[in-house]
Nucleic acid binder design. Sequence first.
DNA 1: AGCGTATAGTTTGACATCAAACTAAATGCC
DNA 2: GGCATTTAGTTTGATGTCAAACTATACGCT
Lengths: 174, 174
Amino acid sequence: MCPLRKRDTRVHGTNGTGGRRRGKNGEAFGLPINFGPLAHWVGFNLRMAQEAAFQAFSRHSQEIGESPGRFATLTLIARNPGISQTELSLANGRDKSSLTPVVEDLVRRGLVERTRMDTDRRTYCLNLTSAGKKVLTNMTRCARRHERNLDQLIGERERKKFIRILKKIAAEIE
Amino acid sequence: MCPLRKRDTRVHGTNGTGGRRRGKNGEAFGLPINFGPLAHWVGFNLRMAQEAAFQAFSRHSQEIGESPGRFATLTLIARNPGISQTELSLANGRDKSSLTPVVEDLVRRGLVERTRMDTDRRTYCLNLTSAGKKVLTNMTRCARRHERNLDQLIGERERKKFIRILKKIAAEIE
DNA sequence: AGCGTATAGTTTGACATCAAACTAAATGCC
DNA sequence: GGCATTTAGTTTGATGTCAAACTATACGCT
């Protein structure tokens, strides 16, 4: 019943390449994958690239035992001392409720200090401790290595334009 | 104790913009966010753009009640009749175990037909039913609208280069 | 001052995802 | 043929995420 992809007619028929094994990405078992419209669409390729970059970053940063998401969090606190959790979640593109356990963990581990704001007892002020600064310094070194890889892939020339487009998508969609 | 971001010294000091309220993205409460090195890094901007595009797609596609992830799945099955779950998960950039409940759901709802392969009783052959094809047609219409938005944002000229870079990242990182 | 509304952060429930352990079938080697 | 190894798919457990309900403060209006 099943058309037996390993001998799918397209190989001998419409798809005349005959090249059935490239083995790197997106295809397997001898038949190249047909991505159809996905191949040209921004959304799909964004997701695949993001996933790949995320995985690569994870591999890099696990040397120092910190997950990629934490890195942006620590950087944003470092650069915006006294930032509130809501501001942080917005800047980070995540829901504020996702931040609760992250901040709790960072506080528990002594990387972040959390005090109530004087003029509004609801909001927290987040700051790095000196331990936090030290960890961030190490993470930043790792991240720079990772970024250098990406830069090499993209090329210095294209990078600015590329990032400009990414920012535009993040800011202006819909 | 807390430095009171609302009156942070940087506003009157080092950061002389005085413009404290833009209200759209990444900042709030009167102080623009300092993204530090994140601003120039590919990984962070990839994540933000991907997230934004994903959200936009979700809004579009919920008209027809199908999540964005399912769309790629259905498209890949349509374009590669008889594809196995492992092939599909590779093409889709997701772990095969994530696919199990998705396929189960699609089968249960009559959009996908799943048969064992003749020559290897372990692997499944996935195919769209005619109902699945109909649903995919609708989703594709939605997705095209979404893509057209993205295209307008990016510009036809840049789009090809942009996608080429995304593919390169997905394929060649590390 | 008092009451209704808005806001910061937490809790909860649903869901997607991965990685590792597992089951069943296939393949290879003797 | 029989046993070790590989492979396709599922199960399980941990994590990260969102959205909605919730708590507590704050603000605004009279």
